[in-house]
Amino acid sequence: MKRLAFLLFMLLVLWLPVAAQVDSLAADADVHNADYYYNKAVDYFASGNHGYANLYYLKALRLNTAHKYARANLDLAIRMSPDSKLYPERLFLVRVLFQGLDFLSVNRLAMLSLVLLLLTALSLAWLLFYDPDKERALPILSLALLGILCLSSFSLLGVKSYRQRHNQLAVLIAGNEQLLPLSDTATKPLAEIHAGLIVTIMETKGEYVIVRLPNGQVGKLPAKAIAKV
């Protein structure tokens, strides 16, 4: 028991400098504030630069997926864009699910996970010290439910944190660009796309990046034409 406690303590001690380093890296990169990025996006949109506007809306949402103003403005900018038809129409329930996931930003999810962990621990204590002569279905049920929720919450937190750090989204910042086929022999452009279109980077090949459009179409674009979120 002592060894386990010591091991956990050491893990915590080792984690401290790592966490501090991560924080300092984050602080060095930029102002790194969702509101700051949002305001920059609004300024870009007002000046007619829709590419950079969408880029900064996405930067704001990357930090805080629950930033409702950034979400609303980005949705509106997408609907007004000439490439609006490239974005898939989601079913109502899917949309609600995504809205729910967006509401749970990384920090909200972290706090929720912590609360659920505490409740799970209390529920475990309740079950362990429950009167053995009584029926134990209720504490078992509560422990099982809270345990599942807690595990799901931490799993989701892990996924969101990973996606926050390894975001593959990018925005077309060039005015108009031709989406080229992947094959080097084919020369006919696949589509003409416009500034502000959100794409997913799949691979970088020299001066080109292979991207996936919102409608699932895959092609390559000059690396200089897009900006990574």
């Binding site: 924080d23 984050a26 790194h32 305001n39």
Partner: peptide, 21 residues
């Protein structure tokens, strides 16, 4: 409506809770 700018006196650096000790 397009939402306007947010009035902020300062922008504290965002820190993800899971990356903090």
């Amino acid at each position: 409506t397009m939402h306007p700018r947010l009035k902020r006196d300062k922008y504290p650096v965002y820190k993800a809770y899971p990356s903090q000790a």
